[in-house]
Design a protein around this nucleic acid. Structure first.
Ligand SMILES: [Mn+2]
Ligand SMILES: [Mn+2]
Ligand SMILES: [Zn+2]
Ligand SMILES: [Zn+2]
Lengths: 127, 127
DNA sequence: CGATTCATGAGAACGATTCTCACGCTTGAT
DNA sequence: ATCAAGCGTGAGAATCGTTCTCATGAATCG
């Protein structure tokens, strides 16, 4: 049902080149710089498709922009992101997973989902 | 430095009437319905001012809209929000506070800030 | 090789939020 | 109370990330 196209391959490749979270527009610029011509609308659509398929992670920065990243681990996890350079550490948090589930159940809420992201300044950015 | 105006008093009063998180536009509509004429730009500015002063909490829904709420407790806390009716439970989470601080320190990040929000469906909305 | 149908892209549209700037009102001093 | 100073206000324009439109292109499959 999802066709393989030059554009999707290019977006996937551009994503793999990145270590940090990037916005759709940043990735569009990366593609342009690489010489891959991909429409901005297609970049947005493709990233959304990847996200729906859990092939990329997405989060919002403080400005509300959506950022995307292809993470190492495919299993559920969270992130510790440098506010300055966006360097990202993937966090495995059984402690908070259990906490979130317990809190939800304690208040009789179901279908619990959680947004847990840590932001800070990394060592390199402290200079 | 911050002056008391009819508009700010009206926004504060409208906020106090709400139990759930509301967007600036929703609050603007609440004010209009109450007969308080306050410009939309002023509602946005006032909410931002309140948020900066930690007088209201703010978070983003899945669509990226910013929602505001005057919470019971003024101390740092998190929220469990119903995706359907936005009913909100204020969460006190020493467990996650410690976890967040520990994770940040373990990776040599400073100025750690965390975004932790729980979403679910409340008992009434399951009905 | 077709036929089918999903994918693409340029530009328009959208929508939340912010900006502009002339005018009004709060404030603190007189 | 009066008044000057300057913060606050609001209507509308502007911003900007994201989505939509729709005619055209390309993957897929028999
Ligand atoms: Mn989790
Ligand atoms: Mn916390
Ligand atoms: Zn950094
Ligand atoms: Zn509910």
């Amino acid at each position: 049902m999802t066709r393989m196209t030059r554009q999707r391959a290019a977006v996937a490749e551009a994503l793999d080149q990145q270590d940090e979270f990037r916005s759709a527009q940043q990735l569009h610029e990366v593609l342009r710089a690489r010489g891959d011509s991909v429409g901005l609308a297609t970049v947005y659509r493709t990233l959304q498709t990847f996200a729906d398929a859990h092939e990329v992670d997405q989060l919002r920065n403080a400005d509300g922009e959506v950022l995307y990243r292809r993470c190492e681990r495919v299993e559920h996890h969270h992130h510790l992101v440098c506010r300055s350079c966006r360097r990202t550490i993937e966090i495995d948090g059984p402690t908070v997973e259990a906490w979130a589930a317990k809190v939800g159940a304690a208040h009789d809420f179901t279908d619990i989902d959680h947004t847990i992201e840590l932001w800070g300044i990394c060592k390199d950015c402290r200079g």
